[in-house]
Design a protein around this nucleic acid. Structure first.
Lengths: 207, 207
DNA sequence: CCAGAAAACCGCACTCAGTGCAGATTGGCA
DNA sequence: TGCCAATCTGCACTGAGTGCGGTTTTCTGG
């Protein structure tokens, strides 16, 4: 038994229609050249109704943000008895990376491009990232009360996330479409090595 | 001989008047309740003219961003012969922290509060931080061509900046005015220890 | 099957940020 | 002094986002 009331199904469908319509329009016409009115019209709802689905135009690019954050928090909660904070963060990252097609997929590719192109989108993305980070810090500190205080958890999480995004930012830098998974993997390993070296117990980590 | 043409002096004065007026109005009325028209009127210029001084309302809170970034880049350029990348980053941070009253000062305090309060301001701040970070990465990679490639420099800088901001974010968390410099110093040391341990040659660093 | 309540839809009018344009002002400089 | 360029400013406009109020649709209990 899921959330299957007609109301909710309809709402989910409309929401998806909005994302799809926005994806199409952003790709063909460009982000700034697309108005919310056009997106709403393409999804066959009134302009006013749009704002009961998304609070802003930018949010169309990050539709399942909360789901991904939750996956990360779950990964922290499911820590093994022998894991330290660094291992947990690493596993959480892999978890998020797996169940979301974050580098393939039409919307994902569009998002990456618009993040590099449109300031408003970048700002919103960074904002969401920081919010997620804050939650991770709280859960991490709570999960390792003897090894980390809040400030330490903030520093560790910040270093980890900062290293990964810093490396990815350089890697995805200016080129457009051709993203090689191998290179991404390599960049992540560099970032992890830089950020987590003093934290990992086993210096070798496969995959 | 500086930039002392009457034109430039006048322009600088008007710019400062705008920042001052905005500071006053933001403090008394609140950020969202203050319109650009009001700020412009308080600084005795036309509403339209405002946009030839600042591109947006948020930018009023970050008036000397470029100056600070430049100070950081200079600090990198002035590296000593025995310094590694981590030491340079550390020195750059201290440099920036010194010549900008970033934790005292009316505008600085207001900025911190609004960053926590107003999403648009936070987004803009993160954006500026990321831009600065990108420049630092470039300069750092150029300064240490044998020790760092671009991706490594991105990871290192990201880890460093991420750790510091992550720790500060937790520290400045929810409280409002009372910021104790000693606690800040402590948080920075924690962050540096977390992020730079494997990079620093001398594990002890005074001050 | 049928109220009535709740939630969603949606038009209307509004505020405000930000832009393009064109004309008036003013400072720089020969 | 007089010309050029930068600056200032009002006007008109677009587009995001909000509050309000009335209508439609869905849910729930009898």
């Amino acid at each position: 038994m899921r959330t299957v009331s007609l109301r909710d199904r309809k709402r989910t469908r409309t929401r998806q229609a909005l994302v799809d319509a926005a994806t199409d329009l952003f790709e063909s016409r460009g982000y700034d050249q697309t108005t919310i009115a056009e997106i709403a019209a393409a999804a066959e709802i009134g302009t006013r109704t749009f704002f009961s689905y998304f609070a802003s135009k930018e949010d169309l690019l990050f539709p399942e943000a909360d789901v991904r954050v939750q996956a990360g928090l779950d990964a922290i909660a499911a820590r093994g008895p022998e894991e330290g904070p660094a291992e947990v963060l690493l596993r959480a990252l892999r978890q998020i990376g797996e169940d979301s097609d974050d580098l393939s997929g039409r919307l994902a590719a569009l998002r990456l491009r618009l993040i590099r192109t449109v300031p408003a989108v970048r700002g919103r993305g960074l904002q969401l990232q920081q919010d997620a980070q804050r939650q991770i810090v709280r859960h991490l500190a709570a999960a390792f009360p003897d090894q980390l205080d809040e400030v330490g958890a903030g520093a560790l999480t910040g270093a980890f996330v900062g290293a990964v995004t810093g490396a990815l930012q350089v890697l995805l830098g200016d080129s457009d479409d051709p993203i090689e998974p191998a290179a991404v993997q390599q960049a992540l390993e560099v970032a992890v090595a830089v950020a987590l070296t003093p934290w990992l117990r086993h210096p070798d980590h496969q995959q």
